[in-house]
């Protein structure tokens, strides 16, 4: 029998989830799902691996206009598509969409901060600079090499001035299967006002 993919919905999702959990509890650390994503299909198998692990018909998602990714996610998760304002998971493959996404993404409420969006951002894997992060999950602070998408996303998130515990959580996924997470409490340490060439 020909199957669309060989991704194991029990064991591969468990492994991807543990990687996500490691990334989320150790912000700035890069974990890899390259083995698991190789068993999926389409142009965005790494993102699809995250989607299969977290999405089902109980949560909604948005791909910000990426029809191919939308169809792939709907096919394997049965999750309903939604507009960016109400989506539980927002997948961003086009950096130009980031500003709009951060403006529209739901950030939860003070009494229900968990009702916020998780933004999964595709990065191209090209490192362009270093950024220092601090917050829960980081021992003191950590300096990581990061793609420009990473800094731009942090910049846009900070511009929203969320009142904690409201906020959004970000997961960066590269095409090669590298995953880095930045939960809402993790902040960027100022470094002479310049981060990856973006002057604040």
């Amino acid at each position: 029998m020909n199957t669309l993919h060989q991704f194991d919905e029990v064991f591969d999702t468990q492994r991807v989830f543990r990687k996500l959990l490691e990334a989320m509890s150790n912000p700035g650390r890069t974990v890899s799902v390259s083995d698991e994503k190789d068993r999926l299909f389409g142009d965005f198998p790494s993102i699809l691996a995250v989607a299969v692990t977290l999405l089902d018909n109980e949560v909604s998602f948005s791909t910000c206009g990426n029809t191919e990714l939308k169809n792939d996610i709907m096919l394997v998760t049965l999750s309903p598509e939604s507009d960016t304002e109400s989506a539980d998971y927002i997948f961003v493959t086009d950096t130009d969409m980031l500003a709009e996404v951060f403006e529209k993404a739901k950030c939860g409420t003070l009494s229900g901060p968990h009702c916020s969006a998780t933004i999964i951002i595709r990065d191209n894997g090209n490192k362009c600079g270093k950024v220092r992060l601090y917050g829960p999950g980081i021992n003191g602070e950590t300096e990581i090499s990061c793609p420009e998408t990473f800094c731009l996303a942090l910049e846009l998130r900070d511009a929203q001035n969320y009142e904690y515990p409201q906020g959004v959580d970000m997961i960066f996924v590269s095409d090669s299967g590298d995953i880095t997470a930045v939960p809402r409490l993790v902040k960027r340490r100022e470094s002479n006002g310049i981060c990856c060439g973006i002057r604040r």
Partner: peptide
């Protein structure tokens, strides 16, 4: 698997908001 997925989603939220009961 549906139950696990829901719990996993909640775990990630819980880690992102330390101390908050999801």
């Amino acid at each position: 698997e549906g139950s696990k997925r829901e719990i996993r989603r909640c775990v990630l939220k819980a880690v992102a908001i330390p101390g908050y009961q999801v």
